[in-house]
Design a protein around this nucleic acid. Structure first.
Length: 379
DNA sequence: ATTACTTTTCCTGCTT
DNA sequence: AAAGCAGGAAAAGTAA
C-alpha cells in the first residue's frame, strides 16, 4: 500500500515537473487524460523545437545518447541554422560521430570543432539529455490512464489469478475481454522508450519506432472497447463473412487473425479518428523498460540474472494486460504475448532458456538492458 | 498502392 | 488437469 502511494507520488512529481500547459495540443487535455508521449517529450523537455508541424526531426524522438551519426549531423545542421551560424567554419569531417560520442564530448572539445557554437551545442545537448523523460514515458502514460488499476496490479497478490479487480468480465482463461478500464481506453502513447530502439533497430533491421501522433484519447483509442474481441468474434461468426469467407467448406474457423471490425463499421461507430494507432515501443523494449525500472515494476517481472539478461515473468497476465493496454488491445493475454516473444528467438533478440517457465533471456540483438547501458542512457 | 516488418490471433501438439 | 512452451499459419497494423 505504502509502496503504491509512493509510486503515485513519484509519478505525480514527474508530471508536475514535466507538464507544461503552454503547448496548445496539451492545453485542452484534462490532466487525467492521457496524451501522446511524443508530444510530451517535445513540448515539455526540449528547449528547442526541431520542427513545427507534423514532421519532426528524427533526432527529436530519441535521446541524444542513442542518435546515429546521421541524426547527429541533422541536429548539428539544425543548430547551425537555428543559430544562423556560418557553417563554413565547421570542419564537418570531425562531426562523424554518433550520439554517444557526442554526449561524451567536453565543452572544450565542442568548442574546438564548432567554435563559438560549441558552447551553444553543449548546453542544448545538456538540456536534451537531462530533460528527456526517458523510458518511463509509457508507464507514466499507463498510470495516468488508470492509476488505480495499476496500483492494484502492483500491490495485490494477483489481479488475474485471484478475483479480478478488473471487472466481472475477466475470465480465468484470459481469452475474454478484460480491459483494465471499463469505460474508456486512454490513448496509448508513443513511448519515449522507443527512443532507444534505434541503436538496435539498425542492427536488427527493425524499423525505428513510430512517432505517429495520437495525442488525445478520444481520438485514437477512445472506443476500442467497443471493438472488444467478444464482439468481433460474434461479428466474424455471424456477419463479417467477408469476401474470403464465402467458401462452404470451412467446418472450423478460419486460421489466422480475424478482423475486429471493418473500417466502415468502426467509422460509423466512433466517427473520425486518427488513421494510425500509435506504434510505440516494440514488445521486447516494453519488457526491458519494465525491467530496468525495478522500483516501478514490483511484482511484474524480475531479473533472474542481471548480468546475463535473464528475467522472469512474475505476473504474466498482468504484464500482458499492461502491454495490451499500451497497444489498446483489451484482449491481450500472456499466451499471445509469449508467441510474440518466441518470434524474438529467431532474431536473437531473445534467447531460449530451456526448462524454465516464464523465463527469458535477452539476446545479442537486444540492447539497453545492461547496467552500463542503463546508467549511461538514463544520464 | 505497395511492401516489409512486427504483432496478434488461433491452432495443434508437446512438456512440465 | 492446467499452465506453459513451440512453432505454423494467416491476418492486422504500421512505417517507409
Amino acid at each position: 500500500m505504502a509502496a503504491t502511494c509512493e509510486i503515485s507520488n513519484i509519478f505525480s512529481n514527474y508530471f508536475s515537473t514535466m507538464y507544461s500547459p503552454e503547448d496548445p495540443t496539451l492545453g485542452s487535455v484534462p490532466p487525467a487524460a492521457s496524451f501522446g508521449a511524443d508530444d510530451l517529450v517535445l513540448s515539455l523537455s526540449t528547449p528547442q523545437m526541431p520542427l513545427e508541424g507534423p514532421e519532426k526531426a528524427s533526432w527529436s524522438k530519441e535521446q541524444p545518447q542513442f542518435w546515429s551519426k546521421a541524426q547527429v549531423l541533422d541536429w548539428i545542421s539544425y543548430q547551425v541554422e537555428k543559430n544562423k551560424f556560418d557553417a563554413s567554419t565547421i570542419d564537418f569531417s570531425r562531426c562523424d560521430m554518433d550520439g554517444a560520442t557526442l554526449c561524451s564530448c567536453a565543452p572544450e572539445e565542442l568548442r574546438l570543432v564548432f567554435g563559438p557554437l560549441g558552447d551553444q551545442l553543449y548546453s542544448q545537448l545538456w538540456d536534451l539529455t537531462s530533460s528527456f523523460p526517458d523510458e518511463l514515458g509509457w508507464i507514466i502514460d499507463l498510470l495516468e490512464q488508470d492509476s488505480v488499476s495499476f496500483q492494484e496490479t502492483l500491490g495485490d497478490p494477483g489481479p488475474f489469478d485471484q478475483g479480478s479487480p478488473f471487472g466481472p468480465e475477466m475470465q480465468e482463461d484470459g481469452r475474454q475481454p478484460s480491459p483494465y478500464n471499463p469505460g474508456s481506453y486512454g490513448a496509448g502513447a508513443p513511448s519515449p522508450g522507443s527512443s532507444d530502439v534505434s541503436t538496435v533497430s539498425s542492427t536488427i533491421s527493425t524499423p525505428g519506432t513510430g512517432a505517429s501522433q495520437c495525442s488525445h484519447s478520444s481520438d485514437c483509442g477512445g472506443s476500442d472497447v467497443d471493438l472488444d474481441p467478444t464482439d468481433s468474434k460474434l461479428f466474424s461468426r455471424d456477419d463479417s463473412s467477408d469476401h474470403k469467407k464465402g467458401d462452404p467448406k470451412h467446418g472450423k474457423r478460419k486460421r489466422g487473425r480475424p478482423r475486429k471490425l471493418s473500417r466502415e463499421s468502426r467509422d460509423s461507430l466512433e466517427g473520425r479518428r486518427n488513421k494510425h494507432a500509435p506504434r510505440g515501443t516494440h514488445l521486447w523494449e516494453f519488457i526491458r523498460d519494465i525491467l530496468i525500472h525495478p522500483e516501478l515494476n514490483e511484482g511484474l517481472l524480475k531479473w533472474e540474472n542481471r548480468q546475463e539478461g535473464v528475467f522472469k515473468f512474475l505476473r504474466s497476465e498482468a504484464v500482458a494486460q499492461l502491454w495490451g493496454q499500451k497497444k489498446k488491445n483489451s484482449s491481450m493475454t500472456y499466451e499471445k504475448l509469449s508467441r510474440a516473444m518466441r518470434y524474438y528467438y529467431k532474431r536473437e533478440i531473445l534467447e531460449r532458456v530451456d526448462g524454465r517457465r516464464l523465463v527469458y533471456k535477452f539476446g545479442k540483438n537486444s540492447s539497453g538492458w545492461k547496467e552500463e547501458e542503463v546508467v549511461g542512457g538514463r544520464n
